Simulated assay, not measured.
Amino acid sequence: MKLSSLLKWLTGGSEAFLAIPIAGGAFIFSNGWLPLLFMFVFHLITLVVSAKDKRSYAGSILGMITSAIGAIPIVGWVMHTVTAIVLLIDAGRSTSLDNKS
């Protein structure tokens, strides 16, 4: 498995956790919105590694946008959910490509 695929699985799982309505919001709020900053940097790293591996990085761009507007309660929840779905589908496709080669 390539590093880009692993990072997509990790960022997708993290976004899925943040998409849990009360738990994700409480985690973000209780940590002073630092998880959003962490996720922005994590998505940026994933974007760079994915670009280097010549893999899709649309999920990482969406993740950075989500991290930027994730502090808005309902909008953040929807964005975390959509981003998690996009990243996990992309991770599955990347892993499938890794297994074929």
Rank of each mutant, 00 (worst) to 15 (best):
F40K: 05
D98T: 08
I72R: 05
I72W: 03
S30Y: 15
I72M: 13
L97N: 04
L97S: 08
I85V: 15
L6T: 06
P21E: 09
Y57F: 09
F17N: 09
I22V: 14
D90C: 01
S94E: 14
V41A: 02
T66R: 03
P73S: 14
A58T: 09
I61F: 04
M64N: 00
I45P: 02
Y57S: 12
V75M: 03
P73F: 10
L6M: 10
L10Y: 06
T66K: 06
S30E: 15
H80I: 11
M39A: 08
V49G: 03
G25C: 11
K54C: 01
V48D: 03
S94T: 12
I72H: 07
T11F: 13
H43E: 08
L36F: 05
L97Y: 03
T81N: 01
F38Q: 10
V48S: 03
F42N: 06
V49S: 06
Y57P: 10
L88V: 01
V78G: 07
A58R: 11
W77L: 15
A71R: 07
G12T: 10
V41G: 03
S14N: 08
I22G: 02
I22P: 00
T81D: 00
P35T: 09
N31L: 13
T83V: 06
S67P: 02
V48A: 13
S5Y: 00
L3A: 14
A58E: 08
A16L: 15
M39W: 01
A26V: 10
V48C: 07
D53H: 10
K52G: 12
T83H: 07
S67M: 02
G92Q: 03
I61V: 15
T81K: 03
S67I: 05
G70F: 10
L47M: 15
P73A: 14
S94L: 12
V75T: 14
I45G: 05
F29R: 12
L47N: 05
T83A: 09
S56K: 00
Y57R: 09
L6V: 03
G76I: 02
W33R: 00
A19G: 01
M79C: 06
T46W: 08
I85T: 04
N31V: 08
G70S: 02
R55H: 07
S67K: 02
D53F: 06
I28Q: 12
A51C: 06
F27S: 10
S67D: 04
M39P: 00
G24A: 07
R55S: 09
M79V: 04
I22C: 04
L97P: 01
G25I: 13
D98K: 06
I28F: 00
T11K: 01
L88Q: 03
P35D: 12
I65G: 01
G25T: 15
R55F: 04
G92T: 09
V41S: 01
I74V: 15
V41Y: 03
W9T: 00
T66C: 02
V86K: 02
T66N: 01
D98C: 10
M1I: 11
M39I: 09
I20G: 08
G13E: 04
N31E: 00
M64A: 08
T81I: 05
S4Y: 11
I89G: 01
G24F: 12
S14C: 11
I20P: 01
V86E: 02
